[in-house]
Amino acid sequence: MTDVHTLPRALTAQVGMELRLTLRRGESLLITLAVPVLLLVFFSSLSIVRFPGSDSSPVGYLLPGMLALAVISNGMVSVGIATAYERYYGVLKLLGSSPLPRAGLIVAKVVSVIVLEVIQLLLLLLVAAVFYGWRPGGSLIEAVVALLVGTASFTGLGLAMAGGIRAEITLAGANGLYLLFLLLGNAVLPLDHLPGVLQAVARVLPATPLTDALRSAMTGGTLASGFGSSIVEEAIWGAVLILLAALTFKWE
């Protein structure tokens, strides 16, 4: 009888709390918000790396990679570390005995991730447009699909880490993986700049299909091809990682 009224209220309250706490974690904001913007500015302003299709400006190549990084950092780093510590502090356990359903907590986390991503995407697009003359192109629908599938994958990865391993290890692991995806995820450095072995490693990481799909979507396929195959690959990653999270997640 009461659930009908309390569930939406409970969810919005939980989303509010998630957002508020995320905004309070300065070190986490640095990684999620500042790093992609700084990388965009850095590599767009200095021609250290020769990017494909960068006759005028590398921003067209870089921006999709930075959007992917934003998704990875919000989903995996921010959610993963925060949730791991919530488990450590017993917060998940107490919430588990409250009327907020367990699925409701996950939904609240995903919604708060999406809200933060939207803010961050707007910031990145604004910087790209104002300072580096970036103009929208390609397919908006494809880009949104890629962002959503990527969000599902990396939030799943963050939750799998948070639920399965200790908080300290999640903290180190999430930051380590972030660096790995940054370097080998085709986000900043084009894969063909890498030695053969690293290229092979990069091809099997879940970050690469996300950056490829986004780059293909946002450039109409000119800087990366095969949106279809990339998005399917990313969706498989998403399914695997969410399943992993569901299997390993512990509430205490």
């Binding site: 706490l21 017993g90 107490l94 009327p99």
Partner: peptide
């Protein structure tokens, strides 16, 4: 869960 209240032995609250 609508009708019970729980105090855990320890923890349970966001430090921030």
């Amino acid at each position: 869960k609508q009708r019970i209240g729980v105090v855990l032995q320890q923890g349970g609250i966001y430090p921030q």
